[in-house]
Amino acid sequence: MLIRIIEHINLAEAPAYLGSEETGAINLFVGTVRNHSKGKTVLHLDFEAYEPMALKEMEKLGIQAKEKWPLYEVAIIHAIGSKLPGEPVVVIGVSSAHRDASFEACRWLIDELKKTVPIWKKEYYEDNSVWVNAHP
């Protein structure tokens, strides 16, 4: 598994890691910074992580995905630091023999990452900033 928290994401890394002659399908999800949120212009996002725990939780998700679907490999990469609109902030990559498993596992992995991995983002607007999800 490729599990990484990093300042700048290289989009070529996960597919290069996942590719092999036995693989018939590689799914890649790339989450990027959107320039608007709830009607407001987003200038940038700041990400921070509790890194040792975040890496552990990401690895647990990778192991669970490999138990649930017949996968060859899993890559989970998350960025930290300040990110501008359009920049990639998360990459989920999955390889399998056939496409159903990789589509499903990729979707599951990003959904679970958002629920359990201790990473936080703060959205900066023109007039203020907020920690996303902090309040009901």
């Binding site: 509790y50 359990t116 201790p118 999800n133």
Partner: peptide, 25 residues
């Protein structure tokens, strides 16, 4: 660095962290 239940005993040898609502991805 593991999520803990409320009844777990803690002491100053443990690494303890507050985890507010996460928002990765």
């Amino acid at each position: 660095s593991e999520y803990a239940e409320d009844d777990l005993a803690i002491n100053s040898n443990s690494e303890i962290a507050l985890i507010p609502p996460v928002s990765g991805g």
